[in-house]
Amino acid sequence: MSYSLLLSVVIASHVGLSPTNDDDRPNLVSGWAETANTDCGNELVCLGARSSLVNSSMATLIEGGCFPDGSGCSEAQSLVLVSLKKARDSIELERRESNLVLSFEQLQSASLDEERMLLVVEEWISTAEAVPCELSDQICDTGKLWLLGEADSAARSLPGCNEATKLGCWSDRSAVRDAIDARIAPIRASFFQRINWPDAGTWGASAANAAWTLVQHADADPDFQRAILERLNKMSSLSKTDKRHRAFLTDRVALASGEFQVYGTQGRCTESGWRMFAVIDASNLDERRAELGMIPIEDYTAEVSPACS
């Protein structure tokens, strides 16, 4: 049995749970943890899927008041926490034994030069491109989303430029980012031809975040962004995570169309920090944000401004 089929069998009884029913959360996280502990070999896609499920499970536990140190956890949550730590250790052992780099965080800590970093990124992309996923093979697609999401992060977080670097450094960085985006684009398109949207309630927040990042950064294809936004608007039930994703994409599409944004998620860096682009009905902006569980715009500005320095 292939690793993707094996994992699909394990999770099959869990993927249909409602993303908005808190009563289902313990069963869902338990299923994710079980799947994350399934031995499926050392393939990048498989390890990426397992990592995604671990991250999603931990995020869901924390949202429910159960923390990694065990505080605030019920007996059932504590058992899941033990299972997740076991899965995390297993993934790390398999990764090291196979000498694999599985995430951008690991890539940053590996002390590689830029050329070798880009080779790792290309391996992620080419693996996601080469591995076929059946329509019902959610775990395979979760692994591909993980790899593409990490590649997208790398494209925007290569070693920075400073006064000591060669002339044209920033344009070189932009060229690298654009090249990675171009490699990702057809794989992203293929994914969304088969999958409507990987909602956080059934795929996990990690997978949903990766998908949202890929769509959010598809500025070279505004028609694609608009099509995904239409899908999200037509979905009858969205998790809090997906509602926030929709808000960001709503603003992105509006700005691309020359319109004011709605939720104030888009802006630019200035000498004094991040500054929001114009919004409609600015006096009620925080009320609209609060409806989606988003923090007030003043707090958001303070949160993202350090990235501008």
Score class of each variant (00 low, 15 high):
L5F: 07
L6E: 14
L7K: 03
V10T: 09
I11K: 03
I11V: 13
T20D: 15
N21E: 15
D22M: 08
N27E: 14
N27V: 04
S30I: 03
S30A: 15
E34Q: 15
A36K: 06
T38Y: 00
N42P: 00
E43Q: 13
C46R: 07
C46K: 08
G48A: 10
S52A: 15
S52V: 06
L53R: 04
S57A: 15
S57Q: 03
M58A: 05
M58Q: 11
T60V: 09
G64E: 14
G64D: 15
C66M: 08
P68N: 12
P68V: 09
D69V: 02
S71V: 02
C73F: 03
S78Q: 14
V80H: 04
K85F: 06
K86T: 14
K86N: 13
D89L: 08
D89A: 15
S90E: 13
S90G: 09
E94Q: 13
S98E: 12
L100P: 02
V101K: 09
L102I: 11
Q106H: 12
S109C: 02
S109T: 14
L112H: 11
L112W: 06
E114C: 07
L119T: 14
V121Y: 05
E129H: 10
V131P: 03
C133Y: 07
L135E: 15
S136R: 09
D141Y: 12
E150W: 03
E150V: 05
S153R: 15
A154N: 07
S157W: 08
P159L: 07
G160N: 07
A164G: 05
T165L: 08
K166A: 07
W170Y: 11
D172P: 00
R173F: 03
S174P: 00
A179W: 03
D181Y: 04
D181H: 12
I184D: 08
A185M: 11
S190G: 12
S190W: 02
F192V: 01
F192Q: 01
F192N: 01
N196K: 10
W197A: 10
W197C: 10
W197S: 11
D199Q: 12
D199C: 04
T202H: 14
G204L: 11
G204C: 12
L214A: 07
Q216T: 02
Q216W: 00
H217D: 14
A218M: 02
A220M: 05
F224V: 01
R226K: 14
A227M: 11
E230W: 00
N233P: 00
M235H: 03
S236M: 06
S236L: 09
L238A: 08
K240H: 11
R246W: 00
A247N: 01
L249R: 01
D251H: 01
R252T: 13
V253M: 03
A254S: 12
L255P: 04
S257V: 02
G258C: 01
F260S: 12
F260E: 12
Y263I: 10
G264D: 06
G267K: 06
G267Y: 05
M276R: 11
A278Q: 08
S283G: 13
L285M: 05
E287W: 00
R288T: 08
R289H: 06
R289F: 08
G293Y: 01
Y300K: 01
T301D: 06
E303N: 11
C308Q: 10
S309Q: 13
